[in-house]
Every structure is written in structure tokens, then in C-alpha cells.
Simulated assay, not measured.
Amino acid sequence: MKIKKWDIIIISLFVLISFIPAAVFAFQEQRQTSGLYAEIKVQGEVFQTVKLTGHTGREEIRIETKLGVNIVEVVDEKIGMYEADCPDQICYSPEFVSKPGETIVCLPHRVVVEVKGEAPDKDGTDIIAYGGEIHDHE
């Protein structure tokens, strides 16, 4: 039995075609994870991930636990706490966040909203809030 020119061409073609699904899935995964997204955690567990880059319009995310109710709002490419029935209401400041590393925390309900992404903050400044005061740390 002799291997012919067309046998090699056909086998090579099938080998190349077999890599197409892997390339498509890798491209889709890269597209979904690029840009900014917000990770909403409730009691330390990821509740939902929301893509911010390219988001348009308004979307509400309702979080109900035995500790209370929070409503997170996504407006265009920003995310913020729209409503919370916690007693201290500190989670309303800052209103909306959109830069990687910025967070909104509702301590009584154990809800954390954190913006994540590939592009770090351009000035390299971390903002940490303690009891309503804002302190810059380099």
C-alpha cells in the first residue's frame, strides 16, 4: 500500500480543520474577559459578574439575603448601589464606580461590588475609605 499525494493533502486538511474549534473557543473566551467587568460577591461568594465595557442602558440586579436587600444598578459602563436597607447607608458613597480596583461595600449585608479589568488606574493611586473619609495611598 502506497501513500499518495492526495492522501497527505486530505490528512493535512483534516488536521488543520481539527484546530478550528479550539481557536474559536479561545477567541470567544478572550473577547469575553477583555475590558472591564464588575464582580458582585455576597458573603464571600461570587453572586454575579457583569461586563462593563460596551454596556449601554440601565440594568438592576436585586440581591436578597437573610441579612437584607440590596439593589445594584449598572448604568452604561458604571456600576453603583441603587438601594440598600442597611442602617448605615455607607455603601452609597461613592455613587458609581468604573475604574479597576474601585469597590463598593455594604458591610451589614456582606455585599462587595468590585470593578476588575485589564487596564490599571492610570495614576496608580488606591483610594481607601474609612468611615466616610477618603485617604489616598501611593
Rank of each mutant, 00 (worst) to 15 (best):
Met1Asn: 15
Ile3Gln: 07
Ile3Asn: 03
Ile3Cys: 03
Lys4Tyr: 12
Lys5Leu: 12
Trp6Ala: 11
Trp6Cys: 15
Asp7Tyr: 01
Ile8Asp: 00
Ile9Tyr: 13
Ile10Gly: 06
Ser12Glu: 04
Phe14Lys: 05
Val15Trp: 08
Val15Gly: 12
Leu16Arg: 01
Leu16Tyr: 06
Ser18Arg: 03
Ser18Lys: 05
Pro21Leu: 01
Ala22Leu: 12
Val24Thr: 15
Phe25Ala: 10
Phe25Val: 09
Phe25Met: 08
Phe27Trp: 14
Gln28Thr: 06
Gln30Glu: 10
Arg31Leu: 10
Gln32Phe: 11
Gln32Tyr: 04
Gln32Met: 11
Gly35Asn: 09
Leu36Ile: 09
Tyr37Val: 10
Tyr37Gln: 15
Glu39Phe: 06
Glu39Ser: 15
Lys41Arg: 15
Val42Glu: 13
Gln43Phe: 13
Gln43Val: 14
Gln43Tyr: 14
Val46His: 15
Val46Ala: 11
Val46Gln: 09
Phe47Gln: 13
Phe47Val: 12
Thr49Val: 12
Thr49His: 06
Val50Glu: 13
Leu52Val: 03
Leu52His: 03
Leu52Trp: 05
Leu52Lys: 03
Gly54Pro: 04
Gly54Met: 08
Gly54Ile: 05
His55Cys: 05
Thr56Lys: 06
Gly57Cys: 06
Gly57Pro: 10
Arg58His: 14
Glu59Ser: 09
Glu60Tyr: 03
Glu60Asn: 10
Ile61Asn: 07
Ile61Met: 14
Ile61Val: 13
Ile63Phe: 04
Glu64Pro: 09
Leu67Trp: 09
Gly68Ser: 05
Asn70Ile: 04
Ile71Val: 05
Glu73Asp: 06
Glu73Gln: 04
Glu73Asn: 02
Asp76Leu: 02
Asp76Gln: 04
Glu77Trp: 04
Glu77His: 02
Ile79Trp: 00
Met81Ile: 05
Glu83Gln: 13
Ala84Asn: 02
Asp85Phe: 01
Cys86Asn: 00
Cys86Pro: 02
Pro87Lys: 01
Pro87Asp: 03
Asp88Ala: 01
Ile90Trp: 15
Ile90Thr: 15
Tyr92Ile: 01
Ser93Trp: 12
Ser93Gln: 14
Pro94Tyr: 08
Pro94Phe: 03
Glu95Gln: 15
Glu95Phe: 09
Val97Arg: 00
Val97Glu: 03
Lys99Ser: 04
Pro100Gly: 07
Pro100Ser: 13
Gly101Ile: 00
Glu102Ser: 11
Glu102Gly: 06
Thr103Gln: 15
Ile104Arg: 07
Cys106Trp: 00
Pro108Cys: 01
Pro108Ile: 00
Arg110Gln: 05
Val111Ser: 02
Val112Lys: 13
Val113Lys: 05
Glu114Gln: 12
Glu114Lys: 10
Val115Leu: 02
Glu118Ala: 15
Glu118Asp: 08
Ala119Asn: 13
Lys122Asp: 09
Asp123Lys: 04
Asp123Pro: 05
Gly124Val: 01
Asp126Ile: 10
Ile127Cys: 11
Ile128Thr: 05
Ala129Phe: 15
Tyr130Asp: 09
Tyr130Ile: 09
Gly131Trp: 06
Gly131Arg: 08
Gly132Pro: 01
Glu133Lys: 08
Glu133Leu: 07
Ile134His: 12
Ile134Phe: 09
Asp136His: 11
Asp136Pro: 06
Asp136Ala: 12
His137Arg: 14
Glu138Pro: 10
